[in-house]
Design a protein around this nucleic acid. Structure first.
Lengths: 169, 169
DNA sequence: GTCTAATGAGTTGTAATAAA
DNA sequence: TTTATTACAACTCATTAGAC
C-alpha cells in the first residue's frame, strides 16, 4: 500500500496529447511489461490520436482519468491521489485517510470543479453543434470519445449551448 | 521524525538548473530505490531540462517546491523547513511548532514574497509574449513548465506585461 | 527614487447545479 | 428536457510593496 498523503500533496494534472514522441514503448519495470501503452484504467491500448493524462508512470485515457469512487472525471489543476494505479479525487482521498469526516477536517464542502475546454475540444463541439444542437445518447457518446471528455460534461455543454443560442437568438 | 527547528534555521534556497552533471542517478539509500531522479513532491521523473530546487537529498520541480500547507511556491533566499520530504514556508512552520498563534509571535501578517526572474526565464516569457500576449490555460501551463515557474506566477507576469504594453503603447 | 511582482476589487463568460 | 441560478476561471484596472 502506498503513502497516499505524500502522493497527493501538490500533484497537478497536465493535459497532454499522445503522439509518436511522447507515447513510449515497453519499459521493463517490475510492475509493467507491456507492448504498447495501455490505459491504466480500462486497460485498452492507447492510440496515437487519443487524449491522455499521465500520473507517475501510468497513462490513462482522458475520460478514464476519473475518481475510482465517484467516477467523476478529474480536471487540469485539480489535486488527486494515486492508490497503485487507481485514482481518487481529493474529496474521496480525504474520506479515505481520515476514515470519513475525521476530526481534522470539518466538512469543507467539496469545491465545485470547473472543466476548462481546450481549443480543439471546443472546435469539435461547435462543429457538431452546428450540425445537430440536440444529439442523442449515442451521438453524445461518440462526441465525448472524440474530445476525450466524459459523456456528462459533453451533455452539459450541449445543454448550456442550446440555452446560450436561445438567449442571443 | 525530523528536527524541524534545526532545519528551518537560516536555510536558504538556491536556484539551480538540472543538467547531466547535477542530475544524479539511482542511489541505493534505504528510503529510495529509483532509476531516475524523481521529484520528492509530485514523484514524477525529473527531466534534464527541468528547473529544480534541492533540499538536503531531495529534489523538487521548481513549481513543486511549495509549502505543503498554503501551496505557495517558495522563492530564492526564503527560509523554509523540511518535514521528511514535505516543505513548509516559515509562516506555517512557525504555526506548527508553537501550536498556532503562540505567545511568542503575534500574527506577523505574512510578508509578501516577490519572485525575481532569472535572465533565461525572462527571455522565454518575452519570446512567448511577442507571439501571443494572451495565452490560454494550456499555453500558460506549457510556458510555466518551460520556465519552472508556477502557472499563477506566469499568468501574473502576462497580466502585468499586457498592462505595461498598454501603458507605453 | 524607479520598475514591476503581487494583490484586491470589480467585470464577464460560462460550466455546473437546481428547479420545474 | 428547459430554465434559472450559482460559482468558478480568467480577465482588467488601480494600488501596494519589494528589489535594485
Amino acid at each position: 500500500m502506498f503513502n497516499l498523503k505524500q502522493e497527493a500533496t501538490a500533484t497537478f494534472l497536465i493535459l497532454v496529447r499522445v503522439s509518436r514522441t511522447n507515447s513510449y514503448a515497453c519499459t521493463r519495470t517490475d510492475c509493467q511489461r507491456q507492448f504498447g501503452t495501455k490505459c491504466a484504467s480500462c486497460r485498452r491500448l492507447i492510440q496515437p490520436t487519443d487524449w491522455v493524462r499521465r500520473a507517475r508512470h501510468f497513462v490513462y485515457h482522458l475520460a478514464c482519468f476519473s475518481c475510482d469512487q465517484c467516477k467523476r472525471q478529474l480536471s487540469t489543476g485539480e489535486e488527486f491521489a494515486l492508490q497503485d494505479c487507481r485514482l481518487l479525487c481529493k474529496q474521496h482521498y480525504m474520506e479515505l485517510i481520515d476514515g470519513d469526516g475525521g476530526k481534522g477536517l470539518q466538512k469543507q464542502k467539496a469545491k465545485r470543479v470547473r472543466t476548462t475546454f481546450a481549443e480543439e475540444q471546443l472546435a469539435v463541439l461547435q462543429t457538431h453543434f452546428q450540425i445537430d444542437s440536440n444529439p442523442d445518447g449515442a451521438d453524445l457518446e461518440r462526441i465525448a470519445s472524440m474530445t476525450g471528455l466524459s459523456k456528462r460534461v459533453t451533455q452539459v455543454w450541449f445543454q448550456n449551448s442550446r440555452a446560450r443560442q436561445k438567449k442571443y437568438q
